[in-house]
Amino acid sequence: MKSMLKIIGVLLLSVVLFAACSKSTDPADTDIFAGTFKGKVGYIDGDKNISQASGSVFVTKVGTRYDFKFSDAIPALTGVEFEKKDDNSLVSVGSSGTGLITISKDKLVINFTRDSKAWTADCNR
């Protein structure tokens, strides 16, 4: 019985993740999203200045919280909360940092700063 419940649980989780990762899903229109965007990524802080023309960003969203996991040894940008604007531009709210992120089903643009660190991305899906 436990084995059957595990199989059902895995199947349900797979269906949810598949729906959340669909390339036709606009992350700004859903409460749960996961997807990878590829293109230019960058990061600057006091010690590092990373710029990569062929990097990637794995985006996850739960509710209004976004996490951005970058390639190329760029630290993740996590816990970012935004308010949605009409054109899929997301403006930072609260103390999570400042910047503008534009995200759609096909495009991700990040210009964001937090604690004297800056993340940039210009990626497609």
Rank of each mutant, 00 (worst) to 15 (best):
69 K>G: 01
42 G>I: 05
107 K>W: 04
6 K>D: 04
104 S>P: 03
90 L>P: 03
14 S>M: 09
61 K>W: 10
111 N>E: 13
52 Q>H: 14
33 F>L: 01
80 V>I: 07
35 G>E: 03
89 S>I: 06
45 D>E: 03
104 S>K: 13
39 G>V: 05
57 V>A: 08
29 D>I: 01
112 F>Y: 15
99 G>R: 08
108 L>Q: 10
55 G>E: 06
70 F>K: 03
71 S>E: 05
120 T>I: 03
44 I>N: 06
71 S>Q: 02
76 A>L: 07
68 F>S: 10
44 I>M: 08
37 F>W: 15
65 R>A: 13
99 G>Q: 05
31 D>A: 09
88 N>T: 11
2 K>R: 09
113 T>H: 14
44 I>W: 13
107 K>V: 13
101 I>Y: 12
95 S>F: 03
46 G>D: 10
88 N>I: 02
19 A>D: 04
82 F>G: 00
118 A>I: 12
50 I>N: 08
39 G>F: 07
72 D>R: 07
15 V>I: 15
40 K>H: 11
8 I>L: 15
93 V>N: 07
33 F>V: 01
115 D>L: 04
115 D>C: 00
73 A>Q: 14
124 N>M: 07
36 T>L: 04
103 I>Q: 04
64 T>G: 06
92 S>M: 15
113 T>A: 15
56 S>F: 02
100 L>N: 15
43 Y>T: 00
94 G>K: 14
104 S>L: 06
30 T>D: 09
17 L>R: 10
58 F>H: 13
77 L>G: 00
34 A>D: 00
65 R>Y: 12
88 N>K: 13
59 V>E: 02
108 L>A: 05
94 G>H: 11
73 A>W: 11
42 G>Y: 08
44 I>T: 12
98 T>A: 15
115 D>H: 02
78 T>D: 11
50 I>L: 14
82 F>Q: 00
59 V>H: 06
88 N>F: 05
103 I>W: 03
15 V>S: 12
15 V>E: 09
85 K>F: 02
37 F>N: 03
3 S>R: 11
118 A>C: 13
7 I>N: 10
87 D>S: 11
101 I>E: 11
43 Y>A: 00
92 S>L: 12
96 S>I: 08
39 G>W: 04
85 K>I: 01
117 K>C: 04
99 G>M: 07
116 S>N: 14
110 I>S: 03
95 S>Q: 00
20 A>F: 08
27 P>T: 00
65 R>C: 11
82 F>N: 00
72 D>Y: 01
125 R>H: 08
73 A>E: 11
102 T>G: 13
47 D>F: 14
112 F>T: 02
47 D>L: 07
76 A>R: 12
25 T>I: 15
122 D>E: 13
